[in-house]
Design a protein around this nucleic acid. Structure first.
Lengths: 138, 138
DNA sequence: CTAAATGCAAACATTTTGCATCAGA
DNA sequence: TCTGATGCAAAATGTTTGCATTTAG
């Protein structure tokens, strides 16, 4: 998994620096959106203390390259997830703040078609987040 | 419409100041989410030049009171809309940045039930935004 | 009259920019 | 070697706080 991403990065002209490799290890194993501070904490656990600026620049670059996706829940800070996890939605627990992914089979396709017919708005992308209580917090 | 809201505000103990009244006039006629800067621009057109702090405090207070709702699209700044418009979703044009509202009949209820069965996650709220091109920009 | 609303300055948090140095390929 | 990556300081942006003054009811 990680080596596949590394290869794709190389093909896109990115250099494989220790920080960048570590970032992807974190994003891949995290499996859920993670904030800049979360990334920096995870990097610290790996013994790396990169500058915040580096992380911001890195995330901007990887976003442009299509390797990561930015998501935003309510007023909270921006979070990032790796795109290779595929399209999905988020379950945000309003008590413990954990985030779970959820995949819906036929997704929103029929809704999007309906909307196009009704409003002539051509949809390319959507974001759907659910807020509530996770199993533990109920 | 505006007088109905004013009455509700009074009942909740809010004072009806010129700024507050103007804010609601703007939120009601706008019919779509509007940013702090947008609000300040609209107020300026009405000849009012309130401090930004006032607007932030006002929005925080009205949000707590349940009169307005905060929405956030991608990396863009926070936007606000009046809650009395009812639950709906947004169509965000990625070219001209205009926002349209869209209402979906049976909404997401069946999805939310499915998710509860599958993941034991109890949903209270959701936010759904579509990104694409509006009629004019296609 | 009195608590709520406002303005102003300053603090705070997050993100971005400029520039010099470093290092992957 | 040479350009992309990094660190550091400073700036820019968006939002909040403390405190004195004003004002709606």
């Amino acid at each position: 998994m990680i080596e596949k991403v590394i290869k794709a990065l190389k093909n896109s002209g990115y250099r494989i620096t220790p920080i960048r490799r570590a970032l992807f290890e974190i994003l891949i194993t995290s499996k859920k959106p993670i904030s800049v501070d979360g990334l920096i904490r995870s990097l610290a656990k790996k013994g790396m203390k990169p500058n915040k600026t580096t992380i911001y620049r890195e995330l901007a670059s990887l976003k442009t390259g299509g390797f990561i996706k930015e998501v935003q829940f309510k007023s909270d800070c921006r979070m990032y997830e790796i795109t290779s996890l595929g399209h999905h939605h988020h379950l945000v627990c309003t008590k413990c703040n954990t985030i779970e992914d959820v995949r819906m089979e036929n997704d929103m396709k029929q809704y999007e078609k309906k909307i196009y017919k009704k409003m002539a708005f051509k949809i390319f992308e959507h974001s759907l987040e659910f807020f509530g209580l996770c199993r533990k917090c109920q």
